[in-house]
Design a binder for these strands. Structure first.
Lengths: 152, 152
DNA sequence: GTACAACTTCAAGTCAACTTGAGGTCAAGG
DNA sequence: CCTTGACCTCAAGTTGACTTGAAGTTGTAC
């Protein structure tokens, strides 16, 4: 398969495929002249990448899951953690969905005035605000006065 | 409440609060000298913003949900659409979570070699690749050869 | 009544994930 | 032979969501 065929099959633009290759998320099996040649395994891989992106994983995290260089145990722990994280996200999303669904059919003039909406949302809202942001979970540097609420 | 108290309560940095105000997502009730004064309603609002962000909504989309300027019908339709979109996302995430969970305990040397993993993922993967990206859903301009696979 | 930490504005910087553009290569059809 | 179009590389640009820095102002504690 050449790059345009992969693009056609997956809907992923050729520029993105080149970018993914550069980042090490996919590999071409070789070249025909200048042109990349892919085997069909790349389709599966791309589907998995798309899935990971939907789940909010960064390209680097996804690349990390593909890498199986020697340390399967660590890898597995990481996978389990990711699954737990996903589970929490799913619960929040479900709450959000229910809230939206209700708000869409609710007769209150403004959603914030509907007690049911407020109750639905308020519940989830608490769990969100008590928690570090998802990006914060994967390491960050602390500095500056705008940083969380770290008083020096 | 002054800005640092809001920051402390919510974990949202002051710089972000100013940024959100500038974007119209939150409002301060006034000033004391130069300093913004917030009422406690902002906490609820911020929690909702955090929830929306978790759900993958952009700040502009979130702002749109808060805006209730005259057109509740359109707003409600949009809400329902968002809820449906969320529902699809939730299903994908659930699949992903199950796949990860399985991969974490699976004995196959590499996840891609485990038939169960491949089946779990392959299923969801298909549904992902047949679909427009979530950002594509909220409008984009078509141009260039890298564009989707829109056959003219 | 003054020192200073905490606020302010505004412009510019950062980061991830791509996209776009300029300029180049190559196989195939006319 | 020569044009065409799909591919190539590499650098630079874009977008969204913030963060950082410089320079100025002010409420509060001493």
């Amino acid at each position: 398969m050449d790059i345009s065929e992969v693009a056609r099959c997956t809907g992923v633009p050729a520029s993105t495929l080149r970018y993914y290759e550069e980042k090490g998320l996919i590999r071409s099996v070789g070249r025909q002249g200048l042109r990349r040649v892919f085997d069909s395994g790349v389709l599966e891989r791309l589907a998995l990448i798309a899935l990971g992106r939907t789940a909010g994983l960064s390209l680097d995290e996804i690349a990390g899951m593909f890498a199986q260089d020697g340390k399967p145990a660590i890898d597995r722990q990481l996978l389990a953690n990711k699954a737990d994280e996903l589970d929490r996200t799913i619960r929040k999303l479900s709450t959000m969905r229910d809230g939206l669904r209700h708000a869409a059919t609710c007769s209150a003039p403004s959603h914030m005035e509907c007690p049911k909406f407020r109750r639905l949302m308020g519940f989830a809202a608490l769990s969100v605000s008590n928690e570090k942001r998802k990006t914060a979970a994967s390491g960050g540097k602390a500095k500056g006065d705008t940083r969380k609420q770290r008083r020096r």
